[in-house]
Design a binder for these strands. Structure first.
Length: 208
DNA sequence: TGAATGATGCGCT
DNA sequence: GCGCATCATTCAT
C-alpha cells in the first residue's frame, strides 16, 4: 500500500473476522459487533453495511432464546460452533439474521436488528422500494429483505467469502446504549440489547 | 393431524 | 396507537 498523508478515514484496512471472534462470551461479541461491517456477496452483487444494533440470545436461563427448550431441527445451528449464520422465518413473512456465538454444544447467537447501508445501495433499493436511506436496514425483517437473505442462507460459514463480517481501521469509538430486548414477552429482565446511540438507523425508537 | 403462536412491519385511525 | 397479514415450527391430541 502506498504511503500517503492520512486524511481522516482515508486509510482503511479491512480485516475479516475469524472463528475466534465468535467463539467467545456472547455479550462481549454483541458489544464488539457494533461498528463492524457485514459483507454479503449476493447473486446480484456485493453488499455491505455498518452494524448499529444487536441483541443477544443465550441458552442460559433465558426463556426468550430459541434454544431454551432443547435442540430441535430449526435451532440446531445454535448448538454448533460459533461463526455461522442462523436465519429463521417468523410471523409468516419475515426473516431474521443471527450470528452463532460460543463453542460447540453451547447454544447462543446474536440477532442483527439494524445497520447502516454501505455498498450495494442499488440492490437494496431494488429489494425494498420506497424506503429511505436510514430505513432500508432498520429492523431485523427489513434488513433481511434488503439484503435478500432467507432461510436458504442459514448455516453459512462466516469465515468463508459468501457472508462475513469485517473490521475496518476507520471504526470510530462508539457510544453504546444497553436496554432490554424488543418484541418478546419473556426474558425481559435481561439487558441484552446493544445499539449505537448516535446512529439514525437504530430501530425501536421514535422517528425524528 | 391439528391448533397456537411468534426475536415483525405495515397501513389505517 | 392498534390490528392484522401469513406460515414454519412446535407441542398437544
Amino acid at each position: 500500500m502506498p504511503k500517503f498523508a492520512a486524511k481522516s478515514g482515508a486509510l482503511e484496512s479491512k480485516i475479516k473476522l475469524g472463528r475466534g471472534f465468535y467463539e467467545r462470551p456472547t455479550l462481549d461479541v454483541s458489544r464488539e459487533l457494533l461498528g463492524k461491517f457485514i459483507v454479503y456477496n449476493s447473486p446480484d452483487g456485493r453488499m455491505s453495511a455498518r452494524i448499529v444494533e444487536v441483541e443477544a440470545y443465550i441458552d442460559d436461563n433465558d426463556p426468550a432464546c430459541h434454544a431454551a427448550r432443547g435442540l430441535t431441527k430449526r435451532n440446531q445451528i445454535m448448538f454448533g460452533q460459533g461463526g455461522f449464520s442462523y436465519i429463521y422465518f417468523i410471523y409468516g413473512m419475515h426473516n431474521c439474521l443471527n450470528f452463532v456465538t460460543e463453542t460447540k454444544n453451547k447454544a447462543a447467537a446474536v440477532l442483527l436488528r439494524a445497520a447502516e447501508p454501505d455498498e450495494g445501495l442499488d440492490i437494496m433499493v431494488q429489494n425494498s422500494p420506497g424506503k429511505k436511506l436510514t430505513d432500508f436496514l432498520r429492523g431485523p425483517g427489513r434488513f433481511c429483505r434488503a439484503f435478500g437473505l432467507t432461510t436458504q442462507q442459514s448455516g453459512l460459514d462466516l469465515t468463508k467469502n459468501k457472508l462475513y463480517l469485517e473490521s475496518r481501521e476507520s471504526d470510530k469509538k462508539i457510544k453504546i446504549a444497553r436496554t432490554t430486548r424488543i418484541g418478546i414477552n419473556v426474558g425481559t429482565d435481561k439487558l441484552w440489547r446493544f445499539y449505537d446511540k448516535e446512529s439514525l438507523a437504530v430501530s425501536g425508537i421514535r422517528a425524528r
